[in-house]
């Protein structure tokens, strides 16, 4: 799997630690990450210095959380497709052209590419920090406390719970294909892959039915029970607000200047 998952599933995204970032209440981290990313996304692309500040904020949180730079860089690989797309923009966009190393490039396109590259990498770093310091169950609990509709949280929870199982199952199917000398290299060899995707869908559907029966037999009536309600420490909100507040200040300055 891409993005440094190493095929070991979502449960392994967390890098255990006891940093101040790890210890923050998860709901404060979720809100903070969201607000920070919004501020970054709204920052005008011409204000390069602003992105410097945003990046510095993100990097200092990486350092504060004690996340290994190598891991963060490896996980940043998920944005490579976006960067590839961004790199094409200067060649195909229209408008005023400037010459770089003898090649005519669109000025607008260059700004567009920079815009995508800067915002994607800073935004992705922010989500990497969140996912590396907060476990999936914590994030789900945070969403519940943030009053995200329970149905949505339940859907996400089930997806997370069964994603690993599904990936395992897919892996076993591929192993059994390889064991019978299936070595797909070309598009016209895709048929077994397609049919195994179909089989996987049917199996997942059947599992869904069995899980539902297991839930009914334990008294499920259509709404997930509230399992806990802890007050969020007020100090955590204040600490978690710091990065988005800085980002907001930078955003305002960048818009005014």
């Amino acid at each position: 799997m891409a993005g440094g998952l190493d095929g070991r599933g979502v449960g392994h995204l967390v890098i255990h630690g006891h940093s101040p970032v790890h210890r923050l209440a998860p709901e404060t981290k979720v809100v903070s990450t969201f607000a920070f990313v919004i501020c970054v996304a709204l920052t005008p692309r011409e204000q390069m210095w602003a992105f410097g500040v945003h990046a510095a904020v993100a990097l200092s949180i990486v350092a504060l959380a004690g996340l290994p730079a190598r891991v963060v860089l490896a996980r940043l690989a998920v944005i490579i497709p976006f960067l590839t797309f961004a790199a094409l923009v200067p060649f195909v966009a229209g408008g005023e052209e400037i010459e770089v190393l003898g090649i005519g490039l669109s000025r607008d396109g260059l700004w567009g590419a920079w815009n995508v590259a800067a915002k994607a990498s800073i935004g992705a770093t922010a989500s990497i920090i969140l996912s590396a310091t907060t476990s999936v169950p914590e994030i789900l609990r945070a969403l519940t406390r943030l009053r995200v509709p329970k149905v949505l949280v339940s859907i996400m929870a089930f997806m997370m719970r069964y994603l690993d199982l599904l990936v395992d199952q897919l892996g076993r199917m591929r192993t059994s294909m390889t064991a019978r000398c299936h070595d797909p290299r070309w598009l016209w060899q895709a048929k077994p892959i397609a049919s195994s995707a179909g089989a996987l869908f049917v199996r997942s559907y059947e599992r869904g039915e069995r899980v539902h029966q297991a839930m009914l037999s334990r008294g499920f009536t259509g709404t997930m029970p509230d399992l806990e309600e802890q007050a969020t420490p007020g100090g955590d909100w204040a600490r978690a607000a710091l990065p988005p507040v800085v980002a907001l200040a930078v955003l305002l300055a960048a818009v005014m200047l």
């Binding site: 929870a157 899980v211 297991a214 839930m215 509230d226």
Partner: peptide, 29 residues
């Protein structure tokens, strides 16, 4: 208790899973 335990354990943690039944029965938090 069903045949495939993965069908029966559908929550994110063992604690939540064991809580599921009694919480549905209305056991106070």
């Amino acid at each position: 208790v069903f045949q495939d335990a993965d069908d029966q354990l559908f929550m994110q943690s063992v604690r939540d899973d064991v809580s599921f039944g009694p919480a549905n029965l209305g056991v106070p938090r």
